[in-house]
Write a protein that binds this DNA or RNA. Structure first.
Length: 138
DNA sequence: CAGATGACAAGAT
DNA sequence: AATCTTGCCATCT
């Protein structure tokens, strides 16, 4: 820890991830929005990359928008571990090693946050903003 | 101090 | 449908 900043973006991200309940998952983009980093899903991945595998933070409940677990080239096996942890919480994977977001996505109460790009679930806030931005631009 | 880099996501081609 | 491009920022050399 060489950072002296009071509350960095990464720390906000960690706080959000800690709120994900067992048996549910959140996408990187969703965590970013909840952390006040709209549209910066990448930062979430960067932040989680910094975590130790034995961290108190439930990093394994964060998956990508396709419903698949991501993996780090530096940490072989973390994807398998992540899958085991999730299955241990009752989360099911289909044949394509994907999680059904419609069933398992964390949907915080009193929030309009939804899953990105999932059929049957409305677009995320960042998607709404981008779409409106696009329409204005035309 | 400048540049490289790292668990993503969405639009464009 | 698959691949490429861009946006974003904290850390480490």
């Amino acid at each position: 820890m060489s950072s002296s900043a009071a509350l960095t973006r990464y720390q906000k991200i960690y706080q959000v991830v800690q709120q994900i309940p067992a048996g549910k998952v959140a996408t990187y983009g969703q965590v970013a929005e909840l952390a006040g980093l709209l549209g910066q899903a990448r930062q979430v991945g960067y932040a989680l990359y910094r975590l130790a595998p034995n961290s108190e933070i439930p990093w394994h409940r964060v998956i990508n928008a396709k419903g698949q677990v991501s993996q780090s080239p530096c940490r072989k096996g973390t994807d398998a571990l992540q899958r085991e942890l999730l299955e241990g919480e009752g989360i099911g994977f289909n044949r394509a090693e994907q999680i059904d977001l419609k069933t398992y996505l964390w949907q915080p109460a009193s929030s309009t946050l939804k899953a990105p790009g999932v059929k049957g679930i409305p677009e995320t806030i960042s998607q709404q903003i981008k779409r409106q931005d696009r329409e204005n631009n035309q």
